[in-house]
């Protein structure tokens, strides 16, 4: 529901998509900015990796930006998320500062995890991001536990658990969805189905046509949404959040999307065709689609788009500089954070 008195772009009775009936022009421009920020952040991280400034590996979500931003759009700052190994977008969408994200990737003490977690464990607890997770489906039961806290402590929070299509064949997914449903917990399960669990396609890995079909087994609504359509994703998220806040329990949203890059830095892309990748990039890019809609509706013009892009570019450059200049961890601190230090 629109905030009372807020100047949404269009009135309820129009047949424009949800986002334009729900959000103000400023909010929509901010959503676009976040989508740019995610893409430029990941391109910046990839570039830094290629230049040897970042070690290890990383899993990029380029192409999936509308899913992260759309799902997080109706969340309050107090609402919480759990994320995945492909979690940079979720982190930014939930409000993280890219400076501290870059610093984490550079292994610096100013990073969100003080250099202990890196890309795969990026978190921003203050903004409600309980962390990415290196274990496929590992964050799903944790999200349900956070939702149990919200219910028992009556905080009013809703927890969103992001995971990929690969996670839907892990036992943790099934156990967690079942318990969330029998206890009517305020949690939203978001499967970002990008078509492949590493190299194995959803068709080869999953017995049902849609991951959302699995919701029926756990007595909750299963919703399929075009994950590259910002408004459609935000609408599905809003409905699932409202249901959770009413105490009616969880929803499973399947956000169908696509990752342009390989699974990780070792991927040779031998399990899909160039044509398939190019088709998604050319015809279904979530940022291009959103931008075109905003222009068409007169919410932003080309100069406005350029201004957003330029601001994001600057933010990325500053973020990388901040990371470079930040201090490395003190080797004497290597056992810190294993256990809680006595106060």
């Amino acid at each position: 529901m629109a905030t009372a008195g807020k100047a949404v772009v269009a009135q309820q009775q129009t047949n424009l998509p949800f986002a334009y009936r729900q959000y103000s022009a400023a909010e929509l421009k901010e959503a676009l900015r976040k989508m740019y920020l995610i893409r430029r952040f990941e391109e910046g991280a990839e570039d830094a990796y290629m230049r040897g400034l970042i070690h290890g590996t990383m899993h990029l979500s380029i192409g999936q930006e509308a899913s992260a931003v759309g799902i997080c759009m109706p969340l309050s700052e107090d609402d919480q998320i759990t994320s995945t190994h492909r979690g940079h977008g979720h982190c930014i969408a939930k409000g993280a500062d890219v400076k501290r994200m870059f610093a984490e990737f550079f292994g610096k003490t100013t990073g969100y995890c003080k250099g202990r977690g890196g890309s795969m464990h990026i978190a921003d607890v203050a903004k409600g991001n309980l962390g990415a997770n290196g274990i496929v489906a590992g964050g799903i039961p944790i999200a349900v536990g956070a939702a149990l806290s919200a219910k028992k402590l009556r905080t009013g929070k809703v927890v969103v658990s992001f995971f990929g299509d690969g996670a839907n064949n892990e036992g943790a997914f099934h156990e967690a969805l079942n318990m969330a449903s029998i206890w009517s917990l305020p949690v939203v399960f978001v499967c970002e189905n990008n078509g492949y669990g590493m190299s194995t396609s959803i068709e080869r890995s999953t017995a049902v046509r849609s991951v959302a079909d699995r919701a029926a087994a756990y007595g909750m609504p299963g919703v399929v949404v075009d994950g590259n359509n910002f408004s459609a994703v935000a609408e599905a998220s809003q409905a699932a959040l409202a249901r959770a806040r009413r105490g009616e329990g969880p929803t499973l949203i399947e956000s169908k999307t696509y990752r342009y890059r390989g699974h990780s830095k070792s991927d040779r892309n031998r399990y899909r065709t160039k044509e398939e990748i190019e088709d998604w990039m050319t015809n279904r890019d979530p940022i291009a689609l959103f931008e075109a809609e905003l222009v068409e509706l007169g919410i932003i013009d080309q100069a406005g788009i350029e201004a957003v892009r330029e601001a994001v570019r600057k933010e990325i450059v500053e973020g990388i500089e901040f990371a470079k200049e930040s201090p490395m961890p003190d080797m004497a601190d290597r056992e810190r954070y294993v256990y809680t230090e006595a106060a």
């Binding site: 309980l130 039961p141 944790i142 536990g145 919200a150 028992k152 967690a176 318990m179």
Partner: peptide, 28 residues
Amino acid sequence: PDRVMDTPISELGGAGIAVGAAMTGLLP
């Protein structure tokens, strides 16, 4: 039953829910 919660036979999920609850303010 809200404080002495029977779980389904789901050790992985149950343990994970306990972990998530512990991270967010409860003492399971």
